[in-house]
Write a protein that binds this DNA or RNA. Structure first.
Lengths: 206, 206
DNA sequence: TCTGTGTTTAATCAATTGATTAAAAAATTT
DNA sequence: AAATTTTTTAATCAATTGATTAAACACAGA
């Protein structure tokens, strides 16, 4: 019993340390020694638990992607909420997540480029976003209502662009605007209410 | 004479190869041997011309940043063009640039995180964006016209987010939408006209 | 043609780094 | 408490990689 909790906790410690180091430095620049040190354990122990750096990375990356995807899966397919409500929930959820883990999107996107596309195919294997009720609502809004006709893909791109990109480009934005971390977070907090408004304005038939 | 052109061309060849490899793999994963091979020269020659991997990287990165910044400097300070015209020009220019070099923004942003902030401070040393005529126009529009009051920083973030992020996230977007490279480029081409419209809609006083 | 300067290469070095191994330590079982 | 299994470590290996060196090469001017 004590054995299992001990091993479970060291495994968790390693994973947490790995997540931190990988996200800070990226896969290539992250050294297994850094991760071991951050986890407070020996380098050999890391390989004992996870076989190799790449195996460990795959696990971390998969968990990150799930965090990204699972977080919006039920939102997109909720039949009870309007398009406006979904937008607001998505924006709020992501801004909350990224305020806690600002390095997450850049890490995922960068490694997605470099690494073989095995990872990419895992993202949306069954095209659930494409088939989601959310997508149907966008199409319907364009037809039934007086909303402007818009490619649903543009619509989705707009929401995630407006929400995520500021975090990706935060070093530049903070530099341009002369903002410290707190100022920046406050600005992102503002966007929780602004982005849904803007999205609505975009949809308005001109 | 032949000597100088030869050395100039090899220097250029190395830089072009370095830009390619660095952008594909990132600084840490890019090997100097890869760059040398891509340039069709010997590894030692690379160090003969540029002293070290880091020196070469600094040069490439600086050129990339300049490409990014210089491209909008005169646009932002043009006293003859309206806010709408500036928006359209910025969007068109960046979409053209990124269609040619889709890896550029992710590379810059990723390395900006990892590397010491010396680089960051070079981006907008004299705060020219903040002082630009463009920024003044945004403030004026909010006051004088009937436009909605908007933090100029939000305005700027919106334009670059809507323009640049789709390129950064293109692997995901192409996967979700089931798009090949040509489809994706066509979608980005559409955005040249759409984004200015959307920005205008956002500015509209509701 | 010879000399000197700049260019290029092959070979090698030294440091880093992912991974392994064998042994010690701790925990669990009998 | 002894035996067995699991966990942890120190030491080491082997491959990679950025960088250097010394020698060969090209080419200009004398």
């Amino acid at each position: 019993m004590a054995k299992e909790t001990a091993s479970a906790s060291t495994e968790l410690k390693i994973k947490q340390a790995a997540r931190k180091i990988f996200m800070q430095k990226g896969y290539a620049a992250a050294r297994t020694r850094d991760i071991a040190e951050a986890a407070g354990i020996n380098l050999a122990l890391l390989n004992y638990y996870f076989r190799s750096k790449e195996k460990l990375f795959d696990i971390i990356m998969l968990e990150n992607l799930q965090q990204f995807i699972e977080g919006i899966k039920e939102i997109l397919n909720n039949r009870q909420t309007s398009l406006e409500q979904k937008t607001e929930t998505i924006v709020t959820n992501y801004i909350n997540l990224l305020t806690q883990q600002p390095d997450l999107p850049l890490f995922v996107l960068h490694e997605l480029r470099t690494h073989p596309k095995e990872i990419i195919s895992k993202i949306d294997r069954d095209k659930f976003i494409h088939r989601s009720y959310f997508m149907q609502q966008i199409k319907d809004a364009a037809k039934e209502r007086k909303a402007a006709s818009i490619n649903p893909l543009h619509f989705l791109m707009n929401i995630i662009s407006l929400t995520i990109f500021p975090f990706v480009a935060s070093p530049i934005i903070q530099n341009i605007g002369g903002l410290n971390q707190q100022d920046f977070n406050a600005l992102m907090e503002e966007r929780k209410k602004l982005i849904p408004k803007w999205i609505k304005a975009i949809m308005q038939k001109k």
